[in-house]
Amino acid sequence: MTTIETLPSYLDQTPEVAARFARLVERPVALEVKGLTKVFDSSRGAVTALKDLSFSVHKREFTCVIGPSGCGKSTLVRILAGLETATSGEVLVGGKSVSGPGPDRGMVFQGYTLFPWLSVKENVMFGPKVSGTSSVAAEREARQWIDLVGLSKFENAYPYQLSGGMKQRVAIARALANQPQVLFMDEPFGALDAQTRCEMQNYLLEIWKNVDITIVFITHDLDEAVFLSDRILVLDANPGRFREMVEVPVSRPRSNDQVFEPLFGATRKHIEHLIHPPGREQKEAPVMRIAKPDPDVI
């Protein structure tokens, strides 16, 4: 526990980063959430999933939402996408109030939600086609998006032939093909193995750089949150409430080595303490078979 003292404060932004954040808040607001409350009326009584949540996200910002399991992250993103209606409060995207799902907001789900009966190309064409784009134009656009996520070779494959990471790349391409203003992602890499997840994070940052898009990314993985975001919205559980909007002081462009930077560690530590306050998790050790002292196992 010596590192704690040697870590800088997560608030110590370099002038460069501070200037970036200053420019960021100057940008127009892409997504605004005002006083959002969601109460589920289940058979076991009312459950307040979200309570009076307010925050805003600026254009081209990468925001992560993090919080303990069951704090309402999925509920939040489903309300933002219009799949769920809020009990009270308002969501504005590009200044317009959200009242249902629409192509101005893209969504990537944790589970694999590619249409299994459509090929990769047809999956990506789905959005443009249902909104009336001609097949030819939709196909041409789809090719570009598939190229962007690096799956040109697989454009005629069916989802069952793809790996988990590839499926999520197609899901991202499919969401982007609609040219949404905001892209919501609900733990999209949660089901992937650590290595693929790391690859996917780099891919995502690359895409974010090249595409005019604002991203709200739900995760429960601290490293993922710090690695990806400009700002991290930390939620409290029971009911889900605003805890803190953390500005990530790690410079951009991000690379995998930055995980070892002191500022990265400091930010990570801070958020970890917000989510799991220290000193609370001393649980009784379960009864187990005790090993004899072994000099080689220390």
């Binding site: 996408a81 219009g82 799949l83 799902p101 893209g106 789900f109 939600t113 249409f115 789905f126 249902v130």
Partner: peptide, 14 residues
């Protein structure tokens, strides 16, 4: 899978 229906909705399917 209702998630497929939701995915379609978020893609703009009426």
């Amino acid at each position: 899978d209702p998630a497929l229906l939701e995915a379609a909705q978020t893609l703009g399917a009426k």
